[in-house]
Design a protein around this nucleic acid. Sequence first.
DNA 1: CTTGATATCCAAAACGTTTTGGATATAGCT
DNA 2: AGCTATATCCAAAACGTTTTGGATATCAAG
Lengths: 336, 336
Amino acid sequence: MPVTIRDVARRLNLSVTTVSRALAGYDDVAETTRQRVITAAREMGYMPQYAARQLRRQRTETIGIVFPTMGTRFSDPFFGEFMAGVGDEASRRNYDLLVSVAPAGKSEQDNYQRLVNSRRVDGFVLARMRIEDWRIRYLLHEEIPFVSFGRSETDEKAPHIGVDGCAGICELVRHLVSLGNRRIAFIGAPPVLTLSRDREEGYRKGMREAGIDVDPDLMSVSDLTSAGGYETAKKLLDYDPPPTAIIGVNDLTALGVIRAAQERGLSVGEDIAIAGFDGIETGKHWHPPLTTVYQPVYEIGRRVCDMLVAIIEGKETIQIETLIQPKLIIRQSTVP
Amino acid sequence: MPVTIRDVARRLNLSVTTVSRALAGYDDVAETTRQRVITAAREMGYMPQYAARQLRRQRTETIGIVFPTMGTRFSDPFFGEFMAGVGDEASRRNYDLLVSVAPAGKSEQDNYQRLVNSRRVDGFVLARMRIEDWRIRYLLHEEIPFVSFGRSETDEKAPHIGVDGCAGICELVRHLVSLGNRRIAFIGAPPVLTLSRDREEGYRKGMREAGIDVDPDLMSVSDLTSAGGYETAKKLLDYDPPPTAIIGVNDLTALGVIRAAQERGLSVGEDIAIAGFDGIETGKHWHPPLTTVYQPVYEIGRRVCDMLVAIIEGKETIQIETLIQPKLIIRQSTVP
DNA sequence: CTTGATATCCAAAACGTTTTGGATATAGCT
DNA sequence: AGCTATATCCAAAACGTTTTGGATATCAAG
């Protein structure tokens, strides 16, 4: 039923070869013929069937992205934004996006292997990198192109775009200190993640520069969700004396912290300062608006995709690693 | 370099046919042979190349989903959750998910046509349906399977899972009225969307049942974002007398409304009641927690995908339309 | 009138599967 | 022995492209 290149060729009394080459823009087909082919193709609604083209070319023009789901929920706006960036750039370059959702762990690995072995994608976009990341080792070994959002120590030279979380948090600490805070708490993320280490390092660095000893009680680990931030903050607020400022490793965490503080009757921004990292849209509209370290996630998504396509297509002049400086955005959750 | 079925066959001195049939589970291959094939395939890391299989079978085992992006942002957690549901179910059924992001309009149409004409997907999942929806007409005409989240009047018998927005909002209005509210405002969404009409109808119905005339000034239209809700609410709060309750057509809108009210120094839940629709995670952690009409988006995603696969695979016994009753969740944004 | 050069076209192979329609061997039955 | 049924295997075709390596016609130059 669907129209094939053969149908077009038959209708024009041309060979399949000529039709194919006309549409592909080769210059060994007469200009008048090309026009006839193009209009006929449009009229008949012909487009090459991808499976056939892929089989012949041995390329899929598809990039893969495996999303982590935590439990049944997948609510971090970070990912939506990132995917929008990757997707927009992909379609601009005539690539498609194959998205596969998987809980981290065994099934995540299955997903990568399946996509690789059955050659469904030309390359991967990776996110939420871990310090020790099997994905990098695996993809390098299989010689599948990839670009990651975030650095991993498994191979520092693996192509990626990173954000200087250390500098970002460090600046945030400076900001908090300048407001007179000295008991500053930090709620981190699972230590396997690179972002955890980077941001925690920024915290330590900022505290050191200010000449404040970090109180181990004020450092805890959560799970990047706002529910986690809420629970962790409740414990932090129980300490005596309680922290005067709390940094969440990401905005979601910080939003949970705000809720916990408000439940205690604290006025956020006056009685306690709270800040996050990411710059999600929601934070801007929160009550009070959230001070945060902003990273341009959508734009990074685009650039990651851009790099990946360049690698897939064998372009040479690509810069293999980029470090982006995030930007401190001060709102009312830290200053009244 | 990658291992093909031919490699496996050669190593075992079998024909390609037998290897294929052994792996596919046909019973005309000896059990011992099958075991040899299976272990060899595993050892060699063989998996059928999808392009080839697709070409032969004329099926892609891929389902398509075209995401709307508004501007550069794509922040509605609704979509993340929906996609997680669709994706989980898809992978359970050995389907992949081809996601394409497109601003609504011309480029959206291009996206559908491209995926259809180049036969990249076996079917589509549709969301955010419009009362008059060309997608339905188009896909019916092209005979491409699809299932939508939400009803459209373009073809009421098109397979879909809907949520009874009318009943949901109506119950919400009853709740607000029972608290003594009579000046209840409603912030809707673009009227082309089915959800706008359904929910607005629920609003009118609820008001009618309560014997309250709707004041046209208290009905306005926004864009489903929290920024839109914020701006719209500022105008509503200027009326004299101002509304004592505001319903947002979705949670994001309602969150914007809350911020606007708080900026005026109103205590949400006491001075004014505010509620939304969706039941996004964020609403639970908002300050104050948001009263909402909950719809199980993740679960609906799964079921939509489930239906779609059934249709693609020609199963007969599928129920073509389902209407789900949403659930009113009362939190402190309406009662102190 | 040859001889190249150039412009335009095309047949056939190849990509890696699945499926069709047997082929062969063995065993059981009369 | 001859026949049928069953178990096991396989060659070849087909899916729809792209690419390779010419083939043919036309034209200008000698």
